[in-house]
Write a protein that binds this DNA or RNA. Structure first.
Lengths: 224, 224
DNA sequence: AATTGTGAATTCCTTCACAGCC
DNA sequence: GGCTGTGAAGGAATTCACAATT
């Protein structure tokens, strides 16, 4: 298999399109590798990774080949190195600046969530429609701006990502505003089925929908 | 999206196995139908639904046929009726009782999130390892129990679903405890790659992973 | 002996395209 | 005329299975 086109692991996945499902799994591989590294291992086979994830060994090997050849036959994958490469591929090796839109209940919880920082996401500005909050800072020391300052702050702070944590009725307007401000990546927590046209990437996290994905199987358990 | 369920290829309604991706989309259809209903419409064609979702008309029609024939040729689908039907299929026509494990930052935000109640999910009990919190109530009036009371309370209150909002280092033990208490459906917010064997259904929502699904495309924008 | 990387086979999902019905 | 429901076709993702490599 003299196929070394992708021997540079940071090279783009050339000719063919990487399946979306593969990208989804990459983060999970990175997480599992972190755990294995902490356990003191230095290589991991695809079958070990399969044990720690809901995926099969063949699937994992196939996923990785989209980006290059990272393993050694007979041995497995070098954990630290593969993790580093996956983080590069995911674009999380460099810090990403994030704006939080909406400093209510959920927004406050997200600000208190330390996991973002651990994965190189920095919430550098918050925005709220409530005049009383504007001009103050969050308990974490992040300044709260008015929505009309969005464009200015996004440009000045080089913000790339917005997290929407606004009430559902404000969600569409907030989305329009962040796109208008030049943001290309949006994570929406408002329980509204928002849509955005490329090149904007929008991801919806609807907590009720997550639960409904579970109740379906509760309701149909007897049939399995 | 949504992250990931340990897929059970044996769950099915009547004859054949319903694809997992179809179940994922059902909730979204239900949401869109609710919006259309509010707009005063009483029928919706598959192409109208396609306009309001990221899915195609053919895909929507195909998804629905897994569960029966709901439309009228030449006319479309009766909105209210289809929505009701979908909710039945999803098992959200009856209230589902939920336990919240972990009343920290994120847990408190989830308690304040009114979307659950709107979709027939009732958080009826909370649990925390912190002795100071045990015996008190949340601002919403939900009693906080010690973890050791899990089995008793789950049985007494007929709780079917657990939401894990505990620190990552406590996640596995919390998962073991809720499974031990007889719970079959778990939504995990701890940023740990947890696994559960069938018949337990586990869904992970890792906020950092959601963001990483976006950064991949930020990092590879030039290629698309 | 162990394990990757990958063609080939397979399974799963989506889209096409149109007959059937309103 | 408009739209559903669905066989058939097409495409995508997964799994098999094994030659290649350490």
């Amino acid at each position: 298999m003299a196929q070394h086109v992708n021997s540079d692991p940071t090279a783009s996945p050339e000719s063919k399109r990487v399946p979306g499902v593969t990208v989804e799994r990459l983060s999970i591989y990175s997480r599992v590798l972190a755990v294995l590294e902490k356990e003191g291992r230095d290589t991991a086979s695809s079958s070990l990774l399969a044990e720690r994830t809901p995926f099969t060994a063949a699937q994992i090997r196939r996923d990785l080949t989209w980006f290059g050849q990272f393993g050694t036959r007979g041995k497995g994958y070098p954990i630290a190195e593969l993790r580093q490469k996956l983080n590069e591929i995911l674009g999380v090796n460099v810090p990403r600046r994030v704006a939080l839109i909406g400093v209510g209940n959920l927004g406050s919880a997200l600000l208190g969530y330390t996991g973002f920082g651990e994965h190189n996401f920095q919430i550098v500005a918050a925005f709220d429609a409530e005049p009383k909050k504007v001009g103050t800072k969050t308990p974490q020391g992040i300044p709260i701006y008015a929505m009309r300052d969005l464009l200015r702050v996004v440009n000045a702070a080089e913000i790339e990502i917005a997290i929407l944590a606004v009430p559902v009725e404000a969600a569409q307007k907030a989305l329009d505003a962040v796109i208008e401000a030049g943001i290309r990546a949006v994570l929406n927590f408002a329980p509204a089925p928002l849509n955005a046209a490329p090149p904007v990437r929008l991801r919806n996290v609807d907590l009720s929908i997550e639960l409904e994905g579970l109740t379906y199987y509760l309701a149909h358990e007897s049939e399995s």
